[in-house]
Amino acid sequence: MRRVLAWSVAVAIGIFAILGLWSAATDSGPVSAEDTAREVSQSLRCPTCAGESIADSSALLSDAMRRTVEQQVRQGRSAHEIQAWFAERYGDEVLLAPPHTGYGWLLWAAPVALVGAAVVVLLVRGGPANRRRWTGLLALAATTLVGVWLLVPRAGAPVPQGMQQEGAGPVDTLPILRDAVDHAPGNAGLRLAFAGALEEAGKDAEAVKAYAAATRLRPLDPDTRYRHAFALVRSGEPRAAREVLEESLRVRQDHAPSLLLLGALVHGEDPDRASALLQQFVQLAPEHPAADQVTAFLEGGLGQMPAEVLP
C-alpha cells in the first residue's frame, strides 16, 4: 500500500514537471518591441568601443544605433534583417555573433568539431565492452545538445505583435511622492517635486501646502519661494504670494522672476513701486521672454498689464 502511494506520488511529480516544462516551452507570450530591440542591440557591437554591445555602451554612436534598431523593429523588420543591415554598413565585425559565412563559419565550426572529437575519443576509449552503452549515452547527450542549441533563443527572432509606443502613458507618481514625503519630511527637493506633481494634477490647494513646507525647509532659496508664490497666485491668494515675495527680495534683491511677479501683483495698488520693480527686472533679465512685453508696458505708462506676464 505504501509502495503504491510512493509510486503514485513520484509519477504525479513527474507528470507535474513535464506539464510545467511543456507549458513553459509552448508559452511564448507577447514580445514587446522594446524587448526585441534590446535583444538585437545586444547582438551588435559598438564600433567605437572595446567589445561592448550597443545596448550596454553609453557612447553617442551606440545611442544613435539603438534608435535605429528601435525604428527598424517598429517597421517590422526581423532581427536577421536588422543585423544584416548593420553588417552592410559597419562590416561583419559589428555582429557579436559572427556570420555563418566566410571565416565566421570557422568560429561556429570549431566548437562543433571539438565536441565531435571529444565524443569520438570517449567512444573509442570507453572500450569495446561498453561501446554500445556509451553510444546510447552519447546519443542521449547529443540529443540534449542539439535540443539546447535549438531552444536557446536566437536574438529576437519573433517579430512582435501589437507594438507599444515609447513611454506608454504618463505614470501616476503622486502616491509615490506623497509616500516619499512622509518618509523623508526634511527633504526640500522631494517636497518641491511633490508640489510640482500636485500642481500638474490640478490640486492647487495641496500644492500650496507642499510649497509652503518646502519654503520652510529652504527659507533662503529664492527659487523655492518664487514657486511657492506662483502656486499661491494660481490658487487665488495673491496677498499671501506678495508676502512670500517681499520676504524673498529682502534676502536677495536680484531674483528676476520674483521681481516680475511681485511687480505684476502690486501694480494695481502701488503703480510706482510696480514700475520700479519691473524696470529692475528688465535690467536684470533683458533676455527673458517677457522682457519685451514688460518694456512695452512700462513705456506705454502703467495701463493694463499684459496677461501673459501673470501666471
Binding site: 559565412t101 566566410g102 570557422l106 565550426a109 570549431a110 568539431a113 572529437a117
Partner: peptide
C-alpha cells in the same frame, strides 16, 4: 578528427 576538421575548414572558406 583530422578529416572532420579539414572538411569543416574547407567547407567554411568557400564562402565569403
Amino acid at each position: 578528427a583530422a578529416t572532420a576538421i579539414g572538411v569543416l575548414v574547407l567547407a567554411g572558406c568557400q564562402h565569403g
